[in-house]
C-alpha cells in the first residue's frame, strides 16, 4: 500500500511542478508582460512579503466559506428531509430552489446589506445560498433511492415512521449531503469572492481575499493578486479533503467497495 500512498502525493506534485515550470519559462522568455501574468517566482515573493496582509484577509474569507458551507449543509439537509416527508412542500419549494440558483448575487447584495449591514453575515448567507442547492439535490436523491423493501421490512418490525427514518433513511442521506457539500465547495470559494466584492464597500468591512484581489487588480499589483489566488486554491483543496475525511469517518460503510486495505 505504501507505493500507492506515495503516488498519491508524487503524482499531483509532478503535475504541479510541470505546470509551474512551464509557466515560469513562458513568462521569463518574454511570452507575456509581468503585469498581465506574473512569473511564479514573483508570486512566491509576493506571498512571502505580504504574508501578514494575506493571512488577515484569508481569515475573513475562510470564516465565510466554512460557516457558509456548514449553514448550507444544515439547511440543505433539513430542507431535503422536509421535502422528502411532504410532497406538498416539495412541489411548492423545489422549483424555487432551482430558480434561486440563477440569481446573480450582485442584484441581491443591496437588499442583504440593507437587512444585515456590511458585516460577515450577509456574505455568509450568499455562500450558504449558493452551496445549499447541491446539498439539497444529493440529499433528496439519496432519500429517494432508499430501498422501498427495506422500509417495508422495518414496517413489519413495527417501526414508526420516525424510527424508519432514523434507521434507514438518515444514514443513507448523510454521506450524500457531504458529497453535495464537496460539490458545493467548488463554487463556495468563488461565492465568497462574489459576496465580498458585492457587499463589502465601507472601509471597515473591506476585508477578505476577494476584496484584496479586486483592489490589487485596480492597483496593478498582479503578483499579490496571484498570491491571493494561490491561498484560495490551497484553501479549497484543504476544505475538500477535510470533507472527504469527515465522510469517511461518519459513513465508513459507503467506502467499502473501494476495497482499500490500509
Amino acid at each position: 500500500m505504501s507505493t500507492g500512498k506515495a503516488l498519491r502525493i508524487v503524482l499531483p506534485a509532478a503535475v504541479l511542478v510541470a505546470l509551474v515550470g512551464g509557466w515560469e519559462i513562458y513568462v521569463d522568455t518574454g511570452g507575456v508582460s509581468q503585469f498581465v501574468l506574473p512569473a511564479p517566482h514573483s508570486v512566491a515573493g509576493a506571498l512571502w512579503n505580504n504574508s501578514e496582509l494575506l493571512w488577515s484577509n484569508f481569515k475573513t474569507t475562510a470564516i465565510e466559506v466554512v460557516l457558509g458551507i456548514l449553514l448550507a449543509l444544515l439547511t440543505g439537509f433539513s430542507a431535503a428531509v422536509a421535502m422528502h416527508f411532504s410532497s406538498t412542500l416539495r412541489r411548492a419549494l423545489y422549483p424555487l430552489a432551482i430558480g434561486s440558483q440563477a440569481v446573480p448575487f450582485a442584484v441581491l447584495a443591496p437588499t442583504l446589506v440593507f437587512w444585515w449591514g456590511f458585516g460577515i453575515f450577509p456574505k455568509l448567507v450568499i455562500v450558504a445560498v449558493i452551496c445549499f442547492f447541491p446539498v439539497l439535490v444529493t440529499t433528496l436523491d439519496a432519500l429517494w433511492s432508499v430501498d422501498p423493501d427495506q422500509l417495508k421490512l422495518l414496517r413489519t418490525l413495527d417501526a414508526s415512521r420516525w424510527q424508519a427514518f432514523r434507521l434507514a433513511e438518515a444514514p443513507a442521506a448523510l454521506p450524500a449531503a457531504i458529497s453535495g457539500a464537496k460539490i458545493a465547495l467548488a463554487v463556495a470559494v468563488i461565492a465568497a469572492f462574489i459576496a465580498e466584492t458585492s457587499t463589502g464597500a465601507t472601509a471597515g468591512s473591506a476585508t477578505g481575499l476577494g476584496w484584496e484581489i479586486v483592489n490589487d487588480i485596480t492597483a496593478l499589483q498582479t503578483a499579490r493578486e496571484y498570491a491571493a489566488v494561490v491561498v484560495l486554491m490551497v484553501f479549497a483543496v484543504a476544505c475538500f479533503y477535510t470533507l472527504a475525511l469527515a465522510e469517511r469517518r461518519l459513513a465508513p460503510w459507503a467506502h467499502r467497495s473501494r476495497g482499500e486495505v490500509s
Binding site: 430501498d147 423493501d149 427495506q150 421490512l153 422495518l154 418490525l157 413495527d158 417501526a159 424510527q163 434507521l167 434507514a168 444514514p171 459513513a251 460503510w253 467499502r256
Partner: peptide, 23 residues
C-alpha cells in the same frame, strides 16, 4: 425477506437486535 436487507451501517449484532431496539 428473500434478500437479507440488513442495514449496512449497523453491526451484525445490532441488525439482529433491530426489532428489540424498535420496541
Amino acid at each position: 425477506p428473500q434478500r437479507d436487507l440488513l442495514l449496512p451501517w449497523l453491526s451484525a449484532l445490532d441488525n439482529a437486535a433491530v426489532a428489540l431496539r424498535l420496541a
